[in-house]
């Protein structure tokens, strides 16, 4: 078992750092290049959501990322204490975005759903959001 807890300031410059840590964390499990890309992309999506939707880029806030590896299963939980999601079901629909002015594609959850084995979202309006991404390295390709 391995575990890393990472806390990053909620600024968009730090999205790339979360990806680098994700890639380094899964590397010992000998993933394929495709699996690394899928995990990096999904982490990038969830952390971006936390920063620009959860916190609306408000300074002084932090995103917590908990990386957990158990056998060949990787679980990455991305948490913020931001505005939360009113309707999780709608938020997960393709093309849904609350920030069209930023040219957000609304495809973040669709990408996570396609690239990970499971994506669990829990959220309370006004309290924050947690996105739990799970993937088995060397598991059946979707």
């Amino acid at each position: 078992m391995n575990n890393i807890k990472l806390e990053i300031a909620a600024v968009t410059e730090n999205i790339s750092i979360s990806r680098v840590v994700a890639a380094a964390f899964v590397a010992p499990l000998d993933p394929t290049v495709e699996e690394i890309t899928e995990i990096k992309t999904s982490v990038s999506e969830a952390v971006t959501n936390a920063i620009i939707h959860g916190y609306r880029e408000k300074p002084g806030e932090f995103v917590q990322i908990n990386f957990l590896a158990c056998d060949r299963e990787v679980t990455i939980e991305i948490c913020d204490s931001g505005v939360g999601i009113e309707n999780i079901e709608s938020a997960r629909e393709p093309l849904f975005t609350t920030r069209p002015e930023m040219e957000r594609s609304g495809m973040g959850f669709t990408v996570m759903d396609s690239f990970m084995d499971s994506v669990e979202v829990s959220s309370r309006p006004g309290e924050g959001t947690s996105v739990k991404l799970t993937k088995k390295i060397g598991g059946a390709q979707k």
């Binding site: 990038s44 999506e45 971006t48 495809m107």
Partner: peptide
């Protein structure tokens, strides 16, 4: 070398 859905949004724009 890497792109996520932010790139998709930029291209659609």
């Amino acid at each position: 070398s890497f792109m996520d859905s932010s790139g998709i949004g930029m291209i659609i724009g």
